[in-house]
């Protein structure tokens, strides 16, 4: 109990929790994007990928619950850290000028988080828990969604926000966990950015393909 209180009750401990949950969520996102590349190989392979996933069923349910818990913890602590940080500087500067440390990703962390939150709510409602009309395959469902220009646009905004979140997060989490070495720091920072951009590009490619290519998921 005392250990839990030490973590949840202190700024540094909360950051460790953010890092651990963020890392796990990022791991999920990486696996998710890899799985989704089955879309490139057409409807059949995507449907069979989805079917194989569901064969893991009892395990999948456990996994979903764990993921949800991690997510709830990440969001709650993220919001509480954000509020406390606002509180710590009651009067803002008349002129604010970065000295060169911040990045677009780090500045927008909370806001990209909110976009991801909204997107995941929509995603769960429209894909994961949707009552699919009888005989509609998952591929048909995704195609129908992404062929709408509005859905495609929102999707692109959301996954870009996710990439931005990861561009800072994938480096930041190591620092929060205490890992830092001058020999690897630049590599780690560039690697985080590269991985975030790659994940973003793969996710963004789906709505683009759906919009411009008739053979998408057929």
């Amino acid at each position: 109990m005392r250990i839990v209180r030490r973590f949840c009750g202190s700024s540094v401990g909360k950051k460790v929790i953010m890092a651990v949950t963020g890392m796990s969520l990022a791991g999920f996102v990486l696996v998710h994007v890899l799985g989704n590349t089955a879309i490139y190989f057409g409807a059949e392979s995507f449907n069979s990928y989805a079917a194989h996933l569901h064969e893991l069923d009892p395990l999948l349910k456990v996994f979903e619950v764990v993921l949800l818990l991690l997510f709830v913890v990440h969001v709650s602590f993220g919001v509480s850290l954000f509020i406390r940080n606002r509180f710590a500087r009651p009067q803002r500067y008349a002129v604010s000028q970065s000295s060169g440390g911040r990045t677009l990703g780090s500045v927008t962390m909370f806001y990209t988080g909110l976009i991801i939150l909204a997107f995941i709510a929509y995603h769960l409602w429209s894909v994961s828990f949707s009552s699919r009309p009888f005989m509609t395959s998952i591929a048909d469902l995704i195609r129908a969604h992404l062929q709408s220009p509005y859905v495609a646009g929102l999707y692109m905004v959301s996954v870009s926000a996710m990439a931005l979140h990861l561009s800072h997060g994938l480096w930041s989490l190591w620092q929060s966990l205490g890992g830092s070495h001058p020999a690897y720091d630049t590599l780690l920072r560039r690697g985080a950015l590269a991985l975030a951009v790659l994940v973003g590009c793969v996710f963004v490619s789906f709505p683009i393909l759906a919009q411009v290519w008739d053979g998408f998921l057929r």
Partner: peptide, 9 residues
């Protein structure tokens, strides 16, 4: 004081 968010400023 606030929390570090690794901004590096």
């Amino acid at each position: 004081f606030g929390n570090c968010t690794n901004e590096r400023e």
